[in-house]
Design a protein around this nucleic acid. Structure first.
Lengths: 229, 229
DNA sequence: ATATTGCAAATTGGATCCAAAAAATAGATG
DNA sequence: CATCTATTTTTTGGATCCAATTTGCAATAT
C-alpha cells in the first residue's frame, strides 16, 4: 500500500493518513478478504505507534470494511454473494433518485465534467483506475442534487463492493458495456429527461450487479472445486 | 447518562460500553447539540483512561453523531433543517421498499410483535421511550426482509434525527397521529397488501418529517428572536 | 475603557508500558 | 504416529506519561 500523506491534506493527523491508506488498500483489493491487519505491522509501516493504527481500524470497522473479534484482531471483511447483491440493490434504489433530483439543477460545468470522465475511460489503460473514474463520473452527475447524506451513503456502498468489481471488469466485457451505458445516461441527462436518466441508471447498476454476482458465483465455485480436488 | 454495562453484553469491552452509552445519550437528547464531549470528563465518569473514550468518540464521529476539530475536541453535531429534511427523505425512499420486500416472507411471530409494539404506545406514559417503541415497531415489520444492509442504514438515519423528534412528539399531537398511521400500516400488512403498506409507510415518514421541520422552524425562529431581543 | 500581548491552564494526539487473552510450539502420553 | 496438555510467543485492550496546540486570563499599552 502507498503512503502519501501529501495527497490527503497538509495537516492530516497520523490516524487519518493511515485510515485513508488502509481504506484505499482494501477497496482497491490490495489486501485480500480475510487477511489479518496486525496493528504492530501497520504501525511499523508508517513509523508510528499502535495508537493511531487502532483509531484507523476502529473507523474501518465502523464502516464495515473490517471486522474485529476481541483479542483476535481485525480482518478484511468478506461479503457473501447475497450481501454484494444487497449493496447493488441498494444503489439501484438510491442513485436513480439522486440523479433525478440533480437534473433540474445541474450546472453545465458538472455536466461537462461528467462527459470528460465518461470519455476518459476509453483512453485509460490502467484497470486499477477504472473504479475511481466510474465513481467520479457518477459523482459529477449527482453532486448538484444537494443531497450530501445520500452521497455519503452511496460512497459507503461503493467502498464495500468496489474491490470485487475490478477482476470482473478486466476479465469480462463489463467495462465496454459500462461505457456504452454511461453514454446513454449522459445523453438522457443532456436532454434533461429525468425519468429516462433515472431508469437507465437503475438498469446500469442492476446489470453491473448481475454481472458481478454471476462472475463471483462462477469463480467461487471454481475455487471450491480446486480446494476439493 | 446511564452507565449500565450489563445491558450491553457480558464481555463487552470498555470502549463498546462507552460508545453505546454516549450514542444513547446523544440520540435521546440528554447531551445537547453543540455540547463539548471532553475525553477526561467522560473517562472519569466510567472510571477508565481516555483511550477507550477516544475509541468511542472515533466511532461516533464515523457515524456522524459528533464532529471533531484537531485539538479542539468532539462536539455533538447539530443538523440544519435541510439536513434533517434530507434524512427523512432518505427514510421515505428506503423504508417502504424494505417493507415491500418483507411482506411476502413475514412470519406471524414478527407481525404479532409489531402489533404488540403498536399497542404499547397507548400505555406508555414515558415519552423518552416512544422513540425506542417506534423503532421496534418498524423494525419488527422490516426484519423479515432479510436486508441487513438496508436495516443498518435505517438505524443510522434514525440515530441522526431521533433526538429532534422527542420534544415535537410531546408538544404536538404528533404521537397520536403516528399511532393512527401505525394501525393503518399494520392493517395493510395483515392484508398482505404490499403496495398499500409501502405507500402508507412513505406517507407516514414524510408526514413525520414535515411536522418535525415545521416544529423546528418555529422553535429555532423563536430562539433567534429571543437572542436578538 | 478597549485592544493587545504574554503566560498559565486545559485539552488533545501520540508514545511507551503493562496485563489479559489467544495462537503457536514443544513435550508427554496413549 | 496421533493426540492431548503445558508453556512460550504474539497480539490486543487499556493505563500512564509526554509533547503540541488551543483557550482563558491577566497585565500592559493605547
Amino acid at each position: 500500500m502507498k503512503v502519501k500523506a501529501t495527497d490527503i491534506g497538509q495537516m492530516a493527523s497520523a490516524s487519518e493518513v493511515i485510515f485513508e491508506a488502509l481504506r484505499e488498500a482494501i477497496t482497491q483489493g490490495e489486501v485480500k478478504e480475510g487477511e489479518a491487519l496486525r496493528q504492530d505491522r501497520i504501525a511499523r509501516m508508517f513509523n508510528v505507534s499502535r495508537i493511531p493504527v487502532r483509531e484507523a481500524l476502529t473507523r474501518l470497522e465502523e464502516q464495515g470494511l473490517v471486522s474485529t473479534q476481541r483479542y483476535r484482531g481485525a480482518v478484511v471483511s468478506s461479503l457473501s454473494i447475497a450481501e454484494i447483491e444487497e449493496v447493488f440493490e441498494f444503489r439501484a434504489l438510491i442513485e436513480p433518485e439522486v440523479l433525478r433530483l440533480a437534473i433540474p439543477r445541474m450546472s453545465e460545468a458538472a455536466l461537462a465534467r461528467a462527459g470528460d470522465f465518461a470519455a476518459s475511460f476509453a483512453s485509460e489503460p490502467d484497470s486499477a483506475r477504472w473504479g475511481e473514474l466510474n465513481r467520479r463520473f457518477h459523482y459529477a452527475l449527482y453532486e448538484d442534487s444537494a443531497r450530501p447524506y445520500y452521497l455519503s451513503t452511496i460512497n459507503a456502498a461503493l467502498d464495500r463492493v468496489d474491490r470485487y468489481s475490478r477482476a470482473q471488469l478486466v476479465l469480462t466485457d463489463g467495462m465496454a458495456r459500462a461505457q456504452r451505458e454511461h453514454e446513454q445516461i449522459l445523453a438522457a441527462v443532456v436532454a434533461r429527461d429525468a425519468d429516462q436518466a433515472a431508469a437507465l441508471t437503475r438498469e446500469h447498476i442492476l446489470a453491473a450487479g448481475r454481472s458481478l454476482v454471476d462472475f463471483l458465483s462462477r469463480s467461487r465455485a471454481g475455487e471450491k472445486a480446486v480446494l476439493a480436488g
